[in-house]
Computed example of a mutant assay.
Amino acid sequence: MVINLSPQQRSDTLTVVRAGDALIVNGETFDFSAMGDGDTLPRAAIQSKWFDGDAEKKDGELILTLLFPMPWNYSPEQAFPVPLENVPDGPVVFPGPLPQRATEAPPEEEQ
C-alpha cells in the first residue's frame, strides 16, 4: 500500500490503521478489498472528507491520498511529506511536528 499525504494546516487529528486492503480512518472502516488490479475508485465514491483523490490498484498495490492535518508547529516532513510506501498492517505512522517548547503556546485562532 502507498499512502500519499496532502498537507493542510488545521487543528483536527487523523488516526489511520491498516488492516489488509482496508483502512480505519478516525474509527471508520474503508474496505478496498473488492478492487481488482488496474481498478480505480473515484474520489466521489469514497464517503469521507479525509480522502483526496481517487484510489487505484496497480500491480496489486493500493495507492491513495489522504488529507494530512498539520499543527501550528508543523515540521518540514509534515509540510513536504514523502509517500508512505510498503505501509504494514497496524497503526500508520505519520511524520511528527516540531517539538514544542514549554514557553510556546499555539497561536489563538481568529474569530
Rank of each mutant, 00 (worst) to 15 (best):
Q100G: 05
D89F: 04
I24C: 10
G53V: 04
E61I: 15
T40Y: 07
G36H: 10
P91Y: 05
A44G: 09
R18E: 11
V25D: 11
A19W: 06
I63E: 11
N86Y: 02
E56T: 15
L14V: 11
T65M: 09
F32G: 09
D31E: 04
P71E: 06
R18P: 10
P69W: 09
P42T: 04
E56A: 13
P42I: 07
A22L: 10
G20W: 09
Q78W: 01
V87G: 04
G27C: 11
V87P: 06
A34G: 13
A22E: 12
A34P: 10
S75A: 03
P95C: 02
T15W: 07
Q100M: 15
L67T: 12
N73V: 01
E28H: 13
E56K: 15
V25L: 10
P88M: 04
F80L: 09
T40P: 05
T13D: 14
F68R: 02
D21M: 14
G36M: 10
G53F: 06
A19Y: 11
N86V: 00
P81I: 00
L62K: 05
D54M: 02
M70W: 01
F94L: 08
D31H: 03
P97W: 03
L23G: 10
W50K: 07
P81T: 01
A79S: 13
E77H: 04
A55K: 04
D21F: 15
A34L: 12
K57D: 05
L41A: 06
A19D: 15
V82E: 15
L98F: 01
T29M: 14
S75N: 07
E28W: 07
A19L: 14
L41Q: 11
K49V: 13
D21I: 07
P81W: 00
A45F: 08
L66F: 12
A45R: 14
P99V: 00
R43I: 07
A19H: 14
G53R: 04
Q100C: 12
L98Y: 01
D39E: 13
D54Q: 02
G27R: 10
P42D: 11
A44M: 11
G20K: 08
A34N: 13
A44C: 03
P69S: 08
W72R: 02
M70A: 05
T40M: 14
S75K: 02
D89M: 03
A34M: 13
T65D: 08
Q78M: 15
L64Q: 06
M35S: 10
G36V: 03
P95R: 01
D37R: 06
V93L: 11
L67N: 14
P69E: 09
P88F: 04
I46E: 07
G60W: 07
V16H: 13
K49M: 13
L14A: 11
V82A: 15
Q78A: 00
S75F: 01
K49P: 09
N86W: 01
G60E: 05
A45K: 14
D52F: 10
D21V: 07
P81C: 01
N26D: 15
P95Q: 03
W72M: 02
D37S: 08
T40C: 08
V93Q: 15
T40Q: 13
